[in-house]
Amino acid sequence: MIVRIGFNSPGGPTDLASLVLGLEREGFDSLWVSERATGPGPDPVVALTYAAALTSRIKLGTSVMTLPGRRPALVAKEMASLDNLSNGRLLPAFGLGLRNVGEQQAFGVRREERAAIFEEALPLLRRFWAEDEVTHHGDHFHYDNLRVLPKPAKRGFDVWMGGASDAVLRRTGRLSDGWLAAFTTPAEGERGRVLIQQAAAEAGREIEEEHFGAVVPYRRGLDPQLETRFARARAVRGPAPIDDVMPTLENLETHLKRLIEAGLSKFVLVPLAPPLDWDTELAEVRDAVLSLQTRR
């Protein structure tokens, strides 16, 4: 199994520059940017374009980008443009969007509409990336002989999805090429992987065994504020031991090994406390876990 380890981005441009240059220098695999329209972090496409200009090797991923509320033709052009500018380094991952009233207002999509829009939009993205012209008349989108350029470097992407509910996991098996879990225990990660593989088989598809990963938050201690954040993050899936979801840096290697045993192999690390110095932070994480990453 090929193991890859990357990092999720911080909020501001100064921190982002320090992080991406450090990731490239230390040998980490990738940078990932989350999306929250109502949060302080940058737009994922803007942040990844900035990171692409500073680097030449690390891969660039969205973790994850909301699809309902965006026009597929414009998303297709945006993703292909960034992929070409970065010499084929983009790793797009999409989701329905956060369970948050503000986010739903920002994207202009009611919660009950999101799944149907997503299921129509994602196949359209694949068509825009691969076909010269697209004609489509569905419930939400209509196109007649529409040509979208440029095409991605490889005329398509391995598209990953996020999410944790059984319905989302089954949709991932039917539509995606990979899964990026978040705030998951090793047992939940294994269960999700198996359910996705079953759904893919039922749809006559196959997802590569190395296309399962997780966003992994880590900490350097515990305080009441962190416990509150943890409880909110687990509100949908229910209680779990905090060490099963948010290990300390000292236990991060053991935690990643458990996730690898569960069949996950792509990891996006997130320090729960913003580092004072990214050079020091990345050096310490490198020493703690980068030996797990498969040599290129």
Score class of each variant (00 low, 15 high):
147 R>L: 06
239 P>W: 03
175 L>Q: 14
276 L>F: 04
72 P>W: 09
100 N>D: 15
293 Q>P: 00
125 L>E: 07
135 T>H: 02
102 G>S: 11
176 S>I: 06
167 A>E: 13
93 A>L: 11
165 S>V: 06
217 P>N: 02
293 Q>K: 00
68 P>T: 04
251 N>R: 07
5 I>S: 12
261 E>R: 13
146 L>T: 15
270 V>R: 08
43 D>C: 07
106 A>F: 15
221 G>Q: 07
296 R>K: 04
244 D>F: 08
82 L>S: 05
240 A>T: 08
120 E>Q: 04
29 D>A: 15
220 R>T: 15
64 V>D: 09
5 I>F: 12
31 L>S: 02
200 A>K: 04
156 G>I: 03
260 I>W: 08
107 F>C: 12
173 G>V: 00
133 E>I: 01
284 E>H: 02
209 E>I: 13
36 R>I: 01
11 G>L: 10
150 P>M: 15
230 F>G: 12
22 G>M: 00
214 A>G: 15
290 L>H: 07
192 G>V: 01
25 R>L: 09
97 G>C: 10
224 P>D: 12
9 S>N: 13
227 E>H: 14
17 A>T: 05
21 L>D: 03
134 V>I: 08
69 G>V: 14
122 L>V: 13
63 S>R: 09
113 E>I: 00
44 P>Q: 06
169 L>Q: 13
175 L>P: 12
134 V>A: 11
99 R>T: 06
159 V>F: 10
36 R>C: 06
62 T>W: 11
211 H>Y: 01
1 M>Y: 08
55 T>E: 05
196 I>H: 01
44 P>C: 05
101 V>C: 03
176 S>A: 15
48 L>F: 02
177 D>Q: 08
89 R>T: 10
187 A>T: 09
230 F>P: 08
161 M>Y: 04
201 A>H: 05
137 H>M: 02
234 R>H: 04
153 A>G: 05
287 D>Q: 15
183 F>Q: 09
16 L>H: 05
96 L>F: 10
38 T>I: 07
214 A>I: 14
117 I>M: 13
206 E>F: 13
82 L>R: 05
7 F>A: 11
149 L>W: 12
249 L>V: 13
158 D>E: 10
101 V>G: 11
215 V>T: 09
193 R>S: 00
